[in-house]
Design a protein around this nucleic acid. Structure first.
Length: 423
RNA sequence: AGAGAGUUGGGUGAGUGGCUGAAACCAACAGUUUGCUAAACUGUCGUACGGGUUAUACUGUACCGGGGGUUCGAAUCCCCCACUCUCUGCCA
């Protein structure tokens, strides 16, 4: 969430940023933030003064009692009872202002970075670069949902029987392709200096708030009611929350973690003809990279992470393009996001396979993730993450782009992981 | 799931109503000293939010797992919740 002090100090910039996101009523919301913060401060000042007086009186009573001056002690005691009521009132005012302020701040998205283009929807995203050639396929080409049936490698119907729509069963070479991709992605990340972690895939409410899924998107997460745990929509949640309430040394930065997890998304109400096959699932596999950096380095790191993800796509020989998301299309908590899209040659359209974002201090503020700098003051760190990569659409693209009349070629880098080179 | 014990500052750990924001030890930081990758000594050493200051200084309040209560006054007493550990049960 945004820092009130930052809103105060850079009011115009914050307002312009929120407008870039097309946030309604941004100006009035910011005004209200400042008003609530003023109220919070003034009520605290008053309360603290009265409390100080009450504390002094209590000490006096203690001394009088000790000296056996009971009558005097009783007289002073009455005075303190009066103070108590006033303090209670101010306390309530203070708490209410604080709660309202917090609730309001939760509704404000992150301020986009200067380089983020203005725009309202995905159509306004900026294509930063394209790489690779779009394969020309013969007329008999099939979309991946046909290919998986033809070669019997992924079974949606079986998944429906076991769980429901959007829970595919990977079989035979299909299952091995999953495992190969996961291992390939993890190995690549290790080589790039990321430390592997295997986090829980159910998380508590605090973690949901920490990375910003709550209070906004509870409808998108599966919830285990009996134990009040959420199934993670992405490994970003457990991995970033490892650093909740943590004060690290500046010398420990950057922290680089990678983790493979299944991801679960309810995707309530967003199904349609355009999300056939592997394009959208309730459960899928993803390798996620997370970095925690010094604020000065976060944008250089964002570029690094973007280049890293592109390297994966190049090794997989997939044609891709990189988008810089516009203000209107960016996620709630992000300050800048690159989306990587792979061309799926049978569907003849671009599929998002990765999203790399810098959250600046937005998550760190909620997480209370700080580092101790050289001046020994603690500052909020910057958090970043990216998919590296999400499997289903990568699989879809590999299947579609590499199909031949008698089989499907597998990318060379995967051969050692697969133990076969064609499906 | 049942029974019991516990949760204190970066760590270990004392503390059963006022002199405790909290002993002691360790770690860390700064300095002194001994001519040698070390030791000794001294000092500093929590966080958050306010007030105040050009910035410091200074100062107020809160915080001993979380929330509530009793009291003039709570780390300390009472209630609820969460978590951890031990034993039993179950189990990959």
């Amino acid at each position: 969430m945004l820092l009130v002090q930052h809103i105060r100090d850079h009011y115009d910039q914050v307002l312009a940023g929120l407008n870039k996101r097309n946030l309604k009523n941004a100006a009035s919301a910011l005004q209200q933030v400042l008003a609530l913060d003023d109220l919070r401060k003034s009520s605290q000042t008053q309360r603290d003064q009265l409390q100080a007086e009450a504390n002094t009186i209590s000490k006096e009573i203690g001394i009088l009692m000790k000296e056996g001056k009971t009558a005097e002690a009783t007289a002073v005691r009455d005075r303190s009872a009066l103070l108590k009521n006033q303090i209670k009132e101010l306390e309530e005012q203070h708490e209410q202002a604080e709660e309202e302020l917090k609730a309001l701040l939760y509704t404000l998205p992150n301020v986009p970075y200067a380089a983020v283009p203005a725009g309202k929807s995905a159509e306004d995203n900026e294509v930063v670069l394209s790489h690779g050639e779009i394969p020309a396929l013969w007329d008999g080409k099939l979309p991946h949902w046909e290919l998986i049936k033809k070669y019997d490698i992924i079974d949606f119907d079986l998944g429906v029987k076991i769980a429901g729509a959007g829970f595919p069963v990977y079989k035979g070479k299909g299952a091995r392709l999953q495992r190969a991709l996961i291992n390939f992605f993890l190995d690549q990340a290790l080589a790039a200096g990321y430390v592997e972690v295997q986090p829980p895939i159910l998380v508590n409410e605090d973690s949901g708030y920490g990375t910003g899924q709550l209070p906004d998107k509870e409808g998108q997460m599966y919830f285990a009611n009996e134990d009040k745990l959420y199934l993670i929509p992405t490994a970003e949640v457990p991995i970033t929350n490892m650093y909740r309430d943590v004060l690290v040394n500046a010398s420990d930065l950057p922290i680089k973690n990678v983790g493979y997890t299944p991801c679960f998304r309810r995707e309530a109400g967003s199904w349609g003809a355009h999300v056939r096959g592997l394009n959208r699932l309730h459960q899928f596999d993803k390798v996620e990279i997370v970095q925690i950096t010094h604020p000065e380095n976060s944008y250089a790191t964002l570029e690094d992470m973007s280049a890293y993800v592109q390297g994966l796509l190049q090794k997989l020989e997939l044609p891709y393009r990189v988008l810089r998301l516009c203000g209107g299309d960016m996620g709630f908590t992000s300050a800048m996001t690159y989306d990587m899209e792979v061309y799926s040659a049978a569907q003849e359209r671009w599929l998002e396979v990765s999203s790399v974002s810098n959250f600046e201090t937005y998550q760190a503020n909620r997480l209370k993730l700080r580092f101790k700098g050289e001046d020994k003051k603690s500052l909020l760190a910057h958090t970043l993450n990216g998919s590296a990569l999400a499997l289903p659409r990568i699989v879809a693209s590999i299947l579609e782009n590499n199909q031949e009349p008698d089989g499907i070629r597998m990318p060379k880098v995967l051969h050692p992981y697969l133990g076969f080179d064609r499906i």
